[in-house]
Amino acid sequence: MPLLEVKDLKVYFPIKGGILARTVDHVKAVDGVSFIIEPGQTVGLIGESGSGKSTIGKSVVGLAKLYGGSILYNGEDITKYIGKNRSSYRRGVQMIFQDVYSSLDPKRRVLDLVAEPLRNFEKLTRAEERKKVDELLAIVGLGPENAMKYPHEFSGGQRQRIGIARAVALRPKLIIADEPVSALDLSVQAQVLNYLKIIQQEFRLAYLFISHDLGVVRFMCDHLLIMHRGRFVETGNRQDVYEDARHIYTRQLIAAIPDPDPDMKDEKRTLRDRVGKEYDDLKDKHYSEDGRVFDLKKLSDTHCVALP
């Protein structure tokens, strides 16, 4: 049984217009996507900014209102309870935020920040709580002396590790990681990603890993969802997407992955130019007349692509 099953999810934002400020139309941020996440699996959700990938993450944790569709957790339809506190879903699904500066309340100590979920769901004594917080900080490589400090005393990477410690405090089954390393220096990105991997093994966590960068995702994800204009253009496992991409949008994203080898620079550029040209040529065949992404078609058990 899948841990999380999202069926035909739609998130629309109203466009107000006219003299009376009525809703005249909708921005279809997410327009009918379905996917499943198995326990312990890492699913990558990749797309350019504005493609709706963060909105999917937000709606799954209840920060964005669903327009349509349903969400099943452990086989149970919990669509109604999303965003409510009294459910196992709230404890089971957590989120890591992209902006490490605004996601920690500047006025509170690390102890209070990390203990916040514990105080909400578990009745612990002060000593137990402190012990638990120290454990959680240790998991993300921070010593117990940090508990009494305030967020502004930490670097970006350390702040994100505090964010991770908060997210895992309730032993969730799934963590939505919304571009968890995009705001960090390249030098600390790998470090934070490693912590995420270690924690995943320790807690048997599933991740919905949201990113705009196929390069980062490659080392994290088992299954990939490529998103464009609020819909999936291609889904598949690592092999399917990286070696056998069918949709021109996916191909373009792959061509855009930076290569660390300087000798490959020219080759890379010609590849990018070729794919870019291909995209322009084949655009009409990959999108319907009004620019909408087609419905997904099954190519194999794992691989789907949105072609007519």
Binding site: L63, Q98, D99, S102, S103, L104, E116, N120, L170
Partner: peptide, 12 residues
């Protein structure tokens, strides 16, 4: 700001 979103997801 995200700290409010974070608190919401943490069940506060």
């Amino acid at each position: 700001l995200d700290y409010v979103s974070a608190a919401k997801t943490l069940g506060t």
